[in-house]
Design a protein around this nucleic acid. Structure first.
Length: 971
RNA sequence: GCCCGGGUGGUGAAAUUGGUAAACACGUAACACUUAAAAUGUUAUCUCUUACAAGGGUUGUGGGUUCGAUUCCCACCCCGGGCACCA
């Protein structure tokens, strides 16, 4: 029993005093300021910035912040230039709803909440560089959010759409697909409605492939580009929902089509005429079949302008629901422009060798005269609609052209891409039979199972499929079909997509299609289990190989045919074309609410949508009297005449501002870039600074952001990369999700359950260092664990033990080699574990070391300082206090992180286990690297082992050096 | 239904990636110090064979591979998450 009689009475550990003292000192000495120091390697560690709610932080919030703080402190000590910033994401509904209730500007609530949040963060002793603080609601910040939107707009990635969108009747705003969970508004739980409303939409689908592929991309050293939890990558993969399959054409059976007489309009191209190329031939072929054909001579074929040609076609051609528009080369561009101006949809569009992108002129080709006289903007959704969803794209002969533009165009238009060889390059022969073949009307299906094509026994269209309307005259049970379509319209999205309910449908009697694989004619049905907005809105039904088709077939007594599966690729080659579909939808980007970034756009009667000039940014949110959403699809901003009515930046005419605002996710989609250069007035981020800090090395936050923030931010980042603002293809190299801290009752911490634990109280009672140690020690960092105030005493005891250990420090002390070894082993373990974000085991190894040191009579200053340094990230206040009491003048947090001595972490004696028939029967100590033979000899002589060996025959001995000897004996 | 995690003492968990299962901590019990309590320290604490000793069993269940499996393989059960009448 050791005596404590001679020990000095220690200074009492008073966390209240020392924590305040050190927090002040740190702020004064500016040790946490980040600098672009070319001498040092950078480390950017980022927290998902909080929404400053009125309730303040609970004890769960800081868990992630403490983790980044631990990492950031170690990296700083290791000599990195560390960027560890914090800010606030303050646009959004809670502040706005509070504003509605109290009729105060939400900014006031935001400012108050931010102040409270900062106080709460500061008492935990986090090492943020507050000079870089940002706030998404600050006009100096959202100026750049608006700037990014303008760039998206200029690149055609922001467009207006009138498609039905998700509308939340409670929050009175539209929602993105990502904001809908199980058919309900993610915020308030109200079932969403589908409403056709004019919306701004971002073309995130253009990035679907890159968003997907880069999840699994490798760096040049073979490691993953994204060091992310597999579960989050998987969520994103599921959300993007790529499926590879085929588009297969099922032509209408001749009984269906023989009497359909169409009205064909053929538009020639640049330097062409109605008498050139294949046009006269095609005209006569179609007329032979009884169709009406118009091939107008377009004005100024050698020096065409869009306005002249489009107007000419609109004036001189007749359009109705039986019209099929065929455009060759530039004529196809004219055709698409014509479609955008028609009032009613036509029957179909055939694009022969054209593109919707002006860059197809290429570097080598000389600019054509129409380069400037055509506007290369296309509303592809509108074109799709106006062409009744019936579009065929015939490939050109130039491989590069096809890969680059036509694949894209046909994907965007959901068109049939008909990959054929023209007889002459660019379809310039006098006869082009492939064009004629492409005109035969057919139903396109999307399938991932082309291998089952011989099992098709019927076809199902979505009730909304554009063909259904045009086929009505040919359907004998017309009334029944119309009734079914009407009924389907009335159903909500939730009812419609409920997989459990019984399938219903109606046959389109009189309509049949031909299976291209076996030329068999099969019936066509409509059913609401087929969705209009996925694939082509049409399904080839294979009841023998698809459960849904089987259910349907059984109910309506349709044949079920077992077949042997074919080779997928062969079937695609023979009967269809390879296609890729995504579940990801474009990002509905406007909200009909007040508290968000105004969209920097102006609507002018003459000029259309005009972007606000960059020099006029930011477009500031005006003050309003009522923040109440209108519910009409207009935001409250629409009522502020002074703000809304402006001059058009182009023609100076009367015009109106866009009154929709951006969604909550806008500001957070790029904020990590602004921390690099938060005060820059000339640019979003200075490119030198961006190159220094990018990418984020470690990003920590909640897993609930997997398919929203983390997809949106990756999308914007890639876009910013494309326009040269960012230098990396991904924003966050390494991501780690924080496991939630639950209430003591095991439920989510919430005011509602009365189980919220306030960090201020915990810090006041136990101290910030104890809170930090406790939260890091609770369990694996990414795991959800219930809070337990009782268990905090363990962390507190540990902090106190470290404090008391300082009594044993003697300058004259000579350390036992075992003590030195333990310190060095712990340095290695703690360094590795912090890098691996395994904070719980780092602390456990520190506890083991402290317990060990506690057993020693005295400790040298040298060893104790090493211990304090590796404790510093976890208990920064106590570490700095004890460090300075040892006579150090500078903060421990800017001292150099200890290196372990590899020689000191090796044991020269190891414990060798002896197993007999797989059971541990004894052990002995042996020098490291003792030979196998000697280990075997020694093992056999261990008394407890000998007992098991007597009278038994040894059958086999396995010796693993430095580990064990395993002996197998007979009966 | 498909896909990703995960399942270890009373509790949070650990296990060098195939080599002594339960480190570290909470809780509990006994003891020491104390008038007492708190604090602190010491000891014990997976489970069964009533206790010592000596053994047996044990990482969701059942099989397999192996000298040896918490770890690898197969099947199943349960919990958490993502997607979903997506063709």
């Amino acid at each position: 029993m050791k005596s404590k009689a001679n020990k000095q009475v220690p200074k009492a550990y008073d966390h209240l005093i020392i924590e305040k003292k050190w927090q002040k000192k740190w702020a004064k000495s500016k040790i946490y300021r980040s600098k672009e120091d070319a001498e040092k390697s950078k480390y950017y560690v980022l927290d998902m910035f909080p929404y400053p709610s009125g309730e303040g932080l609970h004890v769960g919030h800081p868990k992630g912040y403490i983790a980044t703080d631990v990492v950031s402190r170690m990296k700083r000590m290791q000599g990195h230039s560390v960027l560890h910033p914090m800010g606030f994401d303050a646009f959004g509904l809670p502040a706005e709803n509070y504003a509605i209730k109290t009729r105060t500007n939400p900014l006031i609530a935001v400012q108050r909440n931010v102040k409270r949040f900062k106080e709460q963060l500061e008492i935990i002793g986090l090492d943020y560089d507050w000079t870089r603080e940002i706030n998404t609601t600050d006009p100096a910040y959202y100026r750049w959010t608006q700037w990014i939107f303008l760039q998206l707009f200029k690149k055609g990635l922001a467009f207006e759409s009138n498609e039905p969108v998700n509308w939340c009747p409670t929050d009175k705003t539209v929602l993105a697909n990502e904001d809908v969970e199980d058919g309900r508004c993610e915020r308030c739980g109200t079932p969403v409605e589908k409403r056709p409303l004019r919306q701004w939409v971002l073309k995130i689908t253009d990035y679907a492939d890159r968003l997907l592929n880069d999840l699994d991309a490798k760096k040049s050293d073979g490691t993953n580009l994204l060091d992310w939890p597999e579960s989050i990558k998987e969520s994103q993969r599921n959300w993007i929902g790529k499926s590879e399959g085929a588009i297969i054409d099922f032509p209408f059976a001749s009984t269906t089509t023989e009497n359909i007489s169409a009205n064909y309009i053929i538009l020639h191209g640049f330097e062409g005429s109605a008498e050139s190329n294949f046009i006269p031939w095609l005209k006569s072929e179609l007329e032979k079949k009884g169709h009406k054909v118009t091939a107008p001579e377009l004005p100024n074929a050698f020096n065409p302008t869009e306005d002249e040609q489009v107007d000419f076609v609109l004036k001189n051609c007749h359009f109705d629901e039986n019209t099929v528009l065929i455009g060759h080369s530039l004529g196809a561009v004219v055709a698409m422009k014509v479609l955008m101006k028609l009032n009613e949809p036509i029957s179909g569009l055939v694009i022969v060798a054209a593109a919707s992108d002006p860059s197809f002129f290429g570097e080598s080709a000389k600019p054509r005269p129409f380069h400037e006289t055509f506007k290369w903007d296309f509303d592809l959704d509108l074109i799709k609609k106006q062409a009744n969803g019936n579009i065929a794209v015939l490939s050109d002969t130039q491989e590069e052209f096809r890969a680059k533009y036509l694949n894209h165009l046909s994907t965007q238009l959901d068109a049939r891409l008909i990959e054929v060889r023209a007889k002459e390059e660019h379809f310039c022969a006098l006869e082009e039979p492939e064009i004629l073949a492409a005109l035969h009307p057919s139903v396109k299906v999307f399938t991932t199972r082309p291998d089952t094509i011989f099992g098709v026994t019927y076809m199902v269209l979505a009730p909304e499929h554009p063909y259904v309307k045009s086929l009505l005259p040919k359907i004998s049970n017309r009334n029944e079909v119309v009734e079914y379509i009407e009924k389907a319209k009335l159903e909500t999205e939730m009812e419609r997509t409920d997989a459990k309910r019984e399938k219903t449908g109606v046959e389109l009697k009189g309509i049949r299609v031909v299976n291209p694989a076996n030329n068999e004619s099969v019936p066509v049905w409509i059913a609401d289990y087929v969705l209009a907005d996925y694939g082509t809105g049409a399904v080839m039904a294979v009841p023998a190989h698809d459960e849904r088709d089987a259910d349907f077939a059984k109910k309506y007594d349709l044949p079920i045919r077992e077949i042997k599966l074919e080779d997928k690729d062969e079937m695609i080659r023979k009967f269809g074309s390879k296609t890729i579909k995504y579940k990801l939808r474009d990002w509905v980007f406007s909200r009909q609410r007040y508290w968000g970034e105004p969209m920097p756009l102006i609507h002018c009667a003459n000029c259309g949508v005009v972007p606000v000039p960059e020099k006029d940014l930011p477009v500031k949110l005006p003050k309003v009297v009522s923040y109440e959403p209108t519910g009409t699809g207009e935001s409250p901003l629409a009522a502020i005449g002074k703000w809304v009515n402006v001059k058009c930046p182009k023609c100076k005419g009367k015009s109106r501002r866009e009154t929709n605002t951006m969604p909550q996710w806008a500001g957070s989609s790029w904020y990590y870039l602004r921390y690099m250069d938060p005060k820059n007035k000339k640019a979003l981020v200075d490119s030198k600074k961006e190159k220094y800090w990018a990418p984020v090395d470690l990003y920590i936050g909640g897993a609930e952001h997997a398919t929203r923030h983390l997809i949106y931010a990756r999308f914007w980042h890639k876009f910013l990369y494309d326009i040269g603002v960012t230098s990396t293809i991904e924003p966050f190299s390494r991501l780690q999700s924080v496991g939630l801290i639950m209430g003591e009752d095991g439920r989510k911490m919430s005011k509602r359950f009365g189980n919220v634990v306030n960090p201020d109280e915990v810090v006041a009672r136990f101290g910030a260092d104890t809170l930090r140690v406790y939260e890091m020690f609770m369990g694996p960092f990414d795991q959800q664990i219930a809070w337990s105030t009782d268990s905090m005493v363990g962390a507190r005891r540990f902090v106190e033990k470290v404090w008391r250990l300082s009594e044993k420090v003697l300058s004259s002390a000579v350390d036992d080699i075992n003590i030195i070894k333990i310190i060095h082993k712990t340095i290695k373990k703690v360094t590795d574990d912090i890098n691996g974000l395994k904070f719980n085991t780092a602390i456990s190894s520190l506890m083991i070391a402290v317990n060990e040191l506690d057993r020693a009579e005295s400790i040298s200053k040298e060893q104790f300082q090493l211990l304090l340094q590796i404790l510093a990230p976890f208990m920064p206040h106590v570490a700095d206090e004890l460090w300075s009491s040892l006579g150090n003048k500078k903060s421990i947090h800017i001292s150099s992180w200890p290196e372990f001595d590899p020689k000191l972490i090796e044991d020269n004696e190891v414990n060798i286990i002896v197993q007999i028939n797989g059971k541990m029967r004894g052990s002995f100590m042996a020098a490291k690297d003792t030979s196998k033979e000697l280990l075997e000899e020694t093992a056999k002589k261990v008394p407890e082992v000998m007992k098991w060996l007597t009278g038994k025959a040894i059958q086999k001995i396995v010796v693993v050096p430095n580990r064990l000897v395993s002996i197998v004996v007979g009966q």
